[in-house]
């Protein structure tokens, strides 16, 4: 019995020693003794795959391709990304002039989405207030970040803002790849609201709400 106990204890120690404990960090992926159908030879996005010559499962569109199938809802209308419409280009159709106003109907829902998009994407540098005192300023990186309350920027047309958001300007990179068209216009609508919050006077506040402000 004594031998048995000794061997038993040794076995347990050896197994625990080799296999370790739950939750300990490991560089090795888990072993599949019976893989069943857990891993299937199908394409999953953003994975390596030998089927295509690029070695990637996700395909890049042929250069110059424009998606035809995903229209933008503009009020009751659907606008397709290949149309020469201010929604897509930010310009007056047939010209190179930027449109004056946001072509999306500005609703509370659009502004809310705009706030979300702005806080996630724009606020990283421009700060949630839009004053340019975002993270880069805090950590002393990047030379200049625009203050969006600057007169020059307040005076830009919505179309030009759309162009800047989409394709970048100076050090700022374009966000056309990261943000769908509707989100870009939503952020611009919200930016206008932000700017108004600094430009407005007491006369713009409804009579009933004024007393709350003075506190």
């Amino acid at each position: 019995m004594r031998y048995f106990l000794a061997i038993f204890a040794l076995c347990v120690l050896a197994i625990v020693g080799v296999l370790g404990f739950r939750g300990s960090h490991s560089r090795q992926p888990s072993l599949y003794i019976f893989p069943d159908m857990e891993r299937q030879p199908k394409l999953r996005p953003q994975t390596a795959n030998a089927f295509f010559d690029t070695g990637m499962s996700s395909r890049l569109p042929v250069a110059g391709t424009i998606a035809r199938s995903q229209p933008v809802q503009v009020g009751p209308k659907l606008v397709y990304p290949w149309e020469d419409s201010p929604v897509v280009t930010g310009r007056v159709p047939g010209t190179t002039n930027f449109v004056e106003w946001n072509p999306m109907p500005v609703t509370a829902e659009l502004l809310q989405r705009g706030q979300q998009v702005f806080d996630i994407n724009c606020a990283a540098c421009h700060s949630k207030l839009g004053d340019g005192n975002g993270t880069p300023k805090r950590i002393g990186a990047m030379a200049v970040v625009a203050n969006l309350h600057d007169k020059r920027i307040v005076g830009l047309t919505d179309g030009e803002l759309f162009n800047t958001v989409s394709y970048g300007r100076n050090l700022m990179q374009g966000y056309a790849g990261n943000l769908p068209i509707r989100d870009r216009w939503a952020a611009i609508a919200y930016l206008r609201a932000l700017q108004l919050s600094r430009l407005g006077s007491l006369d713009d506040v409804p009579e009933a709400a004024r007393s709350a402000l003075k506190k």
Partner: peptide
């Protein structure tokens, strides 16, 4: 004792709680 150890070992190790948690490539 052996049977208990085998069952305990299977319960403890044959689960994603052991095999997947902590994976840090």
């Amino acid at each position: 004792m052996t049977a208990t150890a085998v069952v305990a070992g299977a319960w403890y190790y044959l689960t994603p709680k052991w095999s997947r948690v902590g994976y840090q490539p």
